[in-house]
Amino acid sequence: MRRLVALGALGLALAACGSPRQAADQSTIVVDTTTSAAAAPVPPSSPPATSAQDPATASGRCTAAVLAGAVESTEAGAGNRYGKLVVTNNGAAPCTVNGYSGLQLLDAAGNALPTDLQRKPDPGPAPVTLAPGAAAAANLHWTVVPTGDEPVDRPCQAEAAKAAAIPPDETQPMSLRWGLGPVCAGGKIEISAFYAA
């Protein structure tokens, strides 16, 4: 009887231990199971905190209703004129501008004058979040030298009294005073994207 018990115990020990190859296989299985469990992705319960804290996505777009706009002359030379379209957040909350403004030259009665707005890549579009009272600017460049069949003995184009500027991704314009002389080359104005002023 003792012999049978001893043989039974030995058989159980051998079954538990197995051969060296079986032991290695069992170890591999255990390691693989642990590794795959650790690598299993955990579904996020909420969006990453960084996107929720990004002021450009947390605030709304700046609209004509909250922006005050002005065109400022910066320099002139050799028939070239340079200026800035400056917008200021007059609202009570932050808002964001990202990209290029629309711009249309107008006469005193509000009629459209020739305007050929061309976007320049420097600086290019980037979100600019404006706190209340903060401003952003876009660079402007145009010429006063007649081109093509434009007259040389009088202004090349009718001089604009004002302009309509549309903030990026919006449809309602702001009314701006122009008063910076005629814009030749068919009303060609180069404009950059907005940047923090």
Rank of each mutant, 00 (worst) to 15 (best):
M1N: 10
R3Y: 00
R3N: 07
R3L: 03
V5Q: 09
L7P: 01
A13I: 10
L14M: 04
A16V: 03
C17I: 14
G18I: 11
P20L: 11
P20R: 13
R21V: 04
Q26D: 13
Q26C: 09
S27T: 06
V30Q: 03
D32H: 11
D32T: 14
D32Y: 07
T34D: 06
T35S: 07
S36E: 11
A37V: 14
A38H: 04
V42C: 10
P43Q: 14
S46P: 00
P48E: 02
A49S: 03
A52K: 15
Q53N: 13
D54Y: 02
A58D: 01
S59Q: 07
S59L: 09
R61T: 02
C62P: 02
T63G: 00
A64Y: 01
A65Y: 06
V66H: 01
A68Q: 01
A68N: 03
G69I: 03
A70T: 10
E72T: 11
S73R: 13
S73H: 09
G83A: 09
G83F: 04
G83N: 08
K84G: 00
L85H: 09
T88G: 01
G91I: 01
A92Q: 07
P94S: 12
P94V: 02
V97H: 11
G99V: 05
S101V: 14
L103F: 07
L106K: 15
L106D: 11
D107K: 15
L113S: 14
D116G: 09
Q118A: 12
R119I: 00
K120C: 01
P121M: 10
G124S: 08
P125D: 05
P127F: 09
P127D: 13
P127T: 15
A135G: 10
A135H: 08
A137E: 03
A138E: 04
A138V: 11
N139V: 10
W142A: 00
T143Q: 03
V145T: 14
V145R: 12
D149S: 13
P151W: 07
P151I: 12
P155I: 13
C156Q: 08
A158V: 14
E159T: 15
E159W: 11
E159Q: 15
A160R: 05
K162F: 00
A165Q: 07
D169E: 06
D169Y: 14
D169I: 14
Q172F: 06
M174T: 00
M174S: 00
S175N: 14
L176R: 15
L176C: 10
W178S: 10
G179R: 12
G179H: 09
C184W: 00
A185K: 15
A185H: 12
G186T: 01
I189Q: 07
I189K: 05
S192G: 09
F194E: 03
F194K: 15
A196Q: 14
A197P: 03
